[in-house]
């Protein structure tokens, strides 16, 4: 019963946040809407027994990633309101129509066992111990690879930040600094 109440409340919050993210003219509101959705999803994680993932969601996403987003929003300029007029001819109706179709198809697909798989296993608690056992035993190699991926991303970011426009001859026109 508690779960149902929680689900209804936070599902509404999540959808509201998502719509705000997409709809708001001002990117700051988009960021706030996204943060609302992220928190709601964290709640769903907890109600599904994924305690560690929920914690990580709050700390990494709502904390670090959102801070970064807001930082960039401030840097790039909050004052520019986007022109709502669509200038690609059929983009808007086609996109909406296709997405409705897509959503419908996914919802229909969810009714088939070949999509969802056999249900009925006992739910397992995603404590730090359980998930740590999982990650550092079965998934240890992919886990190490993610470390590599993060290093590469960090290096790429530093490289992007180091070069200023006009510093390298011939790259002035189209490309970003690289």
């Amino acid at each position: 019963m508690v779960e149902l109440v929680l689900f209804v409340i936070f599902a509404l919050a999540a959808v509201f946040g998502a719509v705000t993210t997409v709809w708001a003219r001002n990117p700051v509101y988009s960021a706030l809407g996204l943060m609302l959705t992220l928190f709601s999803v964290a709640v769903f994680y907890v109600s599904n027994g994924a305690h560690l993932v929920a914690a990580v969601q709050v700390i990494v996403y709502a904390g670090a990633v959102m801070t970064l987003f807001l930082f960039v929003v401030m840097l790039v300029g909050v004052d520019r309101a986007e022109n709502r007029k669509e200038n690609l001819p059929v983009q808007r109706p086609l996109a909406l129509g296709l997405l409705v179709l897509f959503g419908g198809a996914v919802l229909v697909a969810g009714r088939f066992a070949w999509v969802t798989g056999p249900s009925g296993g006992r739910a397992r608690e995603g404590t730090a111990e359980a998930l740590g056992n999982e990650l550092f035993r079965r998934w240890v190699l992919p886990f190490e690879l993610t470390a590599l991926l993060l290093i590469i991303a960090a290096a790429g970011t530093i490289a992007l930040g180091m070069f200023r426009p006009g510093e390298e001859g011939g790259e002035e026109d189209e490309g970003e600094a690289a």
Binding site: L88, L94, L101, A105, V106
Partner: peptide
């Protein structure tokens, strides 16, 4: 237009689905 490329992806996904 990146968004048109994105639309292309969605078309493909829907078709596959």
């Amino acid at each position: 237009f990146v968004r048109q490329y994105g639309l292309g992806i969605v078309v493909g996904v829907v078709a596959l689905l």
